[in-house]
Design a protein around this nucleic acid. Structure first.
Lengths: 226, 226, 226, 226
DNA sequence: AATGAATGAGCATTCATTCAT
DNA sequence: TATGAATGAATGCTCATTCAT
């Protein structure tokens, strides 16, 4: 669920990011300003860290600016408001996550394998960036406003991907058809989501991604003994 | 998840209030001032409504007081801080929920039926009070601080009830034993939780409790066709 | 400077306090309410203690009520406001102090001895009740409003007593007449006042009254060697 | 007792400000905004005025900001709290006063002349800035907390200067040695202090400094006729 | 007279946002 | 672009005072 750009070099998600990056590097060589190539990116990374640490409402814009190594006012050259920063974090992450998910799934034939890949991706992504995971699990939920927007935008699409895969499975006779696809999709999502939340809150440190297999085992076969 | 008192439909509280009011009026027909039976209760109800509507951080103490029909300062006769109000909501609700859950489960022999009852209770409770459900799903999650406290206190116990039931099922050979009970418990909880969240965010109005059956069907049998 | 009533049984200052006291005692025997015969008095004593401990502005009316062992609202049956309590403390104390001073002085012929007696009384009074002294030295000064009123009322009269005594001394050729009596009076008062202030602030505990002699030695003879 | 900087007649501060302003205007004649040269200074001056007028507890931070011609929040860019403003006033003034006092005294040989200079300085300083004098006489005394701190810090040092001068006088046989130097010092201080207090409370307007001579006349020679 | 629950005006402080430089 | 000093609206909480009982 972590946006690619958040983990990769900046700009890669912005139309032909690669080209832009090249251009920037060219400029960088002349201006000798190698560090913080993209300030917008730096602000977002700083915001994720700060939000994760203190929560959205307890985080001050000054904290973010400080973490990003810039002046307070500079934040407003890149974002209209503190609110917009949080939005940007979600929007970018979700868009990126969905795009990646789609791509990876596209090549997989078996619905079960597709679900497996989605679950793995879900946990791999969030498991790779604890701060981002915290923002997603905690801050996203901390606001009905965001939840609705989130729901309306990316989340619905994400859930739809799962749902359609389940429908495929049903059409192919692989999945039971006495279960509503959308409900099954929500259950899978809810289970994965709970894994992430527990992982975040856990005092122990353990890899999140392997939990995908555990979830799928139950999701596929159920808890009843055969 | 709402405490019985707080969760019972409004008319019951009002009936209680009415009775008390009548008594009072009889006692002093001249004085018109009708005292609110339980102001602390009124504040909690008001807070749940306000928090549900605008979120904890966007809610002003004045909003709560106004909703409760009392003066701002009166809130502080019953609660030490705005923060304590939120805590009280959780504490009471969780304690009550767990107590009820335990009682109901105690009489059920079959582990599967016990899980069924837990799931039903979970959705019945939250489904009966949308505002309380919003506070639980949204505000509780919106703060790592609360989540940790919640986790440490009531939530862990709740999850443990589910876990032990699953262990029972495994011992009796009813449930697969290649699945870790705690993971299965989290999955069930996560699935139920997702049902609640979706219900809250949904524009359509539908009964939440019946979703329990849907979840259990999948949780027990899995999604794969036999 | 401590008002007599503040150190003696209540009511002694209110027209024939003794008689009233007797009456009260008579009543007390029937009602068995021997403690706190005069609530107004109790409030004033409590206020002096509380004001001395935390300062006027930091003292809550509730603190005073609690210290006096009565309900908050009861305070307002005896005083119109918190402000009035402070006023009452000063007014009573000053009136009493001046009255006593005049009486004691009246019998003394020698102006020097009269000053001596005034100085002794000043320090004896305040030295006998540290809390009252604190209120006088600290709270009285902490408000220009009070200072002006104090100045206008009792203080001017007190200073006048000293001044006239000095004038007497000058007329009798005992005191230098190249010094303005009012200035000399202020100097004596200022010196005594400083003794009290130092005594209050001192961490060590020592008797205040003996300082009168020290002050007078200098006031009479000056610091220069003869 | 006012720090030189703060105590110097307004025009000096303004001159400094003007020069700075001129420079600024030259640099940018288009921008109309004239920056206040030293905002911290302005806040302190405003606070002294406001505190003198209404007392510390009755003064609102908004009053100070308004008097200083700045926004409320700006106060907190220079001071951590309202309390810190009062502290700053005292600290600066005392430090400055003591420094000046020491310097002036250092060059004087005769103990009597030294005391004279101290007394003159004392009254000159406070007599030159009525508001500052009010804050010193009223607000400083109005809080045992401040008095103790004041006592511990600057005041003790001030009193010590006087005390040692008197000790010098005694060693040189100029002053009686049957009087404790510290007591004499307190008496002198108390007398001066009383002059200031009376000056502040007086409705008439008269120069304070000349009172030094009156006080010293009595302090040196005593009130008794020779 | 006494109570103490209720009131609500009042205020120090914070912090997102602006804007002159 | 970048800065960061300045802004001022916003709000949790206190506490003197009231008043129904």
């Amino acid at each position: 669920m972590l946006p690619r750009q958040a983990m990769s070099p900046p700009h890669i998600d912005q139309q032909r990011g690669l080209r832009k990056n090249l251009a920037k590097q060219t400029r960088s060589e002349t201006t000798a300003r190698a560090t913080v190539p993209d300030k917008r990116e730096a602000i977002l990374r700083a915001a994720i860290k700060v939000f994760a640490g203190k929560g959205y409402f307890n985080s001050k814009v000054a904290d973010i600016a400080s973490e990003a190594g810039i002046a307070d006012g500079t934040v407003y050259l890149y974002f209209k408001s503190k609110d917009e920063i949080l939005h940007s974090i979600f929007d970018r992450a979700m868009a990126d996550f969905i795009e990646d998910g789609k791509r990876e799934i596209a090549e997989i034939v078996s619905p079960a394998d597709r679900l497996r890949r989605v679950a793995e991706l879900h946990l791999e992504r969030l498991g790779a960036d604890r701060d981002m995971a915290i923002v997603f699990q905690v801050e996203l939920r901390g606001s009905t406003k965001f939840m609705r927007e989130f729901s309306a935008a990316g989340f619905a699409e994400y859930l739809d991907i799962i749902k359609r895969t389940i429908e495929d499975g049903q059409k192919q006779g692989l999945f039971r058809d006495d279960i509503k696809p959308i409900v099954a999709a929500k259950i899978l999502y809810g289970a994965l989501d709970e894994m992430v939340t527990n992982w975040i809150l856990s005092k122990r440190s353990y890899p999140l991604a392997p939990m995908a297999e555990e979830v799928l085992k139950l999701f596929f076969g159920g808890v009843l003994a055969k």
